[in-house]
Simulated assay, not measured.
Amino acid sequence: MLRIGAVVMNTSDNRRAAQFWREALHYAPRSANPDFLCPQRGEGVRLHLDEDDRTHLDLWVDSEEEQRSEIERLISLGATRVDWTYPDGADFVVLADSEGNLFCVVNTA
């Protein structure tokens, strides 16, 4: 099932932003990456801080098959594929909504 897994927020200073958002939301840094903040209790939407990327949603799915299916469904709803330079082994596909806002469909498997 497609779900919001993370909000990627563009920042000018990840360290300063992380301190603010950790305290504001009572989130904890993910041990592997202190710029990825997670709820301290239970499931919830992560906050990824990024000084280079645009603010956008990461929508998560649990398999490659589900990713393909959801991408086609979203396109049928009016989303469009975005011309993007992907790194090797990318687990995400970049789309734009009907207003041009970017979002990613991420295979978390």
Rank of each mutant, 00 (worst) to 15 (best):
T55L: 05
G42A: 05
C38A: 14
A32S: 15
D58G: 05
L47T: 05
D35C: 06
R68N: 14
E72M: 09
H56S: 06
S31E: 15
R30Q: 15
D52K: 14
D53H: 13
R30K: 09
R46T: 12
R30A: 11
S31Y: 11
E51Q: 13
H48Y: 13
D58W: 05
R46G: 15
H48G: 06
A32L: 07
P29V: 09
E66V: 13
L59Y: 08
F36T: 15
E66T: 15
G42Q: 01
C38Q: 15
R54E: 10
D50T: 09
D53C: 12
W60T: 09
D52A: 12
L57E: 04
D50M: 00
G44Y: 06
A28I: 13
I71W: 02
E51K: 02
P39M: 11
S31A: 15
S63H: 02
E51I: 10
Q67N: 02
D58I: 03
T55D: 07
D35R: 09
R54D: 11
R30G: 07
D52P: 00
W60K: 04
A32P: 04
Q67H: 06
D52Q: 12
A32F: 12
D52M: 07
T55M: 10
D52V: 12
G44N: 05
H48P: 06
L57I: 13
A28Y: 11
R41S: 03
N33Q: 07
E66N: 11
S63A: 11
R73G: 02
D50C: 11
H56D: 00
E66C: 11
S63L: 05
E65W: 13
L37C: 01
E51V: 09
S63E: 08
C38P: 01
V61N: 03
L49K: 07
E65L: 14
